[in-house]
Simulated scan of single mutants.
Amino acid sequence: MSEIVIQFQQVAASILSLSGLFWIGITVTIYVFSKRIHTLTGNHPLTLPLVISALVLGGLLFVLDVPVSEFQRATSLIHWLLGPVTVALAVPLHHQYQRIAGLGWRLWVAIVAGGVIAPALAWFTLYLFNAPLMLSMTMLVKSITTPLAMETAALTGGVPAIAAVFVISTGVVGAMVCPWVFKLLGGNNPAAQGVALGTVAHAIGTAKALQLSELTGALAAISLSLNGVLTAFVLPVLISTLE
């Protein structure tokens, strides 16, 4: 409880400070502007709001010579809101419960297949190019959420910091290319799209799925959760067994 109180005090301090108000306002403004660009370009994959926002904010911090750590402290409210937002994913899950339950074993098979094939292909690519084992082990956690990926990478001999980079890159690329992939494969099924985005592109893919439909978002949310938990439990056990 004391930790929660401390976090709340830190968030409150950041909101009340001029620096906090300034950077939160700038961040929200840039994101709204990025959303507008995305809409004007007909939701083109290359104008993904997350990418534009990150590039503009990164450039602004560089020009103003503001350390990232200072920006993080000033915008801690946005980081704190990730918790409630994550819990809010239960809302589409609740609304779509009957349709999700109707998928039964097919849902599990799809999640397991996606959770195995995606990292295995990435690992095999690195193996072909003679990449260091440490880097290959880190790549195996690229399709689960950042906190789980970092912990799992540490347990399997990977590098947690690099795992975070792989996870974010995977999510961004997945959200950007998914419209083209779905069009190429003729994947107009909302359930299939949701499972693909949640399993392979984790949280960023889930955010993209929620833009498509509530069912797609719900399937992405449950796929994100199940794939993350399964990978975090199974991968360390598998690695230790092979050793």
Rank of each mutant, 00 (worst) to 15 (best):
K208N: 01
L212G: 07
G102H: 08
L16M: 10
T75I: 01
I26R: 07
F124H: 08
V200G: 01
T156E: 03
R106K: 13
P49R: 05
L210G: 08
A191Q: 05
T199P: 08
N188T: 12
M1L: 06
F62C: 15
I222L: 13
L140M: 14
A192G: 14
I204Q: 03
I162W: 08
L133M: 15
I4D: 09
L40Y: 06
A54P: 00
Q7A: 15
M1S: 12
Q193P: 15
G58V: 00
A118E: 05
P236Q: 09
L242F: 14
L148M: 10
E70W: 05
L107V: 15
L219K: 02
L133D: 15
V173T: 14
V165S: 05
P92K: 13
I37N: 00
T216P: 08
H94Y: 14
I144A: 00
F8I: 11
V28P: 07
P179E: 08
L40C: 06
V165T: 06
V63C: 02
S143T: 00
T152M: 08
A196H: 11
G174L: 03
M150W: 02
L224H: 06
P179A: 07
V66Q: 02
S53C: 04
P92W: 15
A149Y: 03
L89Y: 12
A13F: 12
Y31C: 09
G115L: 06
A175D: 02
V109P: 01
N188E: 11
L82I: 11
M150D: 00
V195R: 06
V11M: 14
A209Y: 10
N227W: 03
I78W: 07
H38L: 01
L219M: 06
K208Q: 10
A218F: 13
H38W: 02
L197R: 08
G157N: 05
L184A: 08
P45F: 03
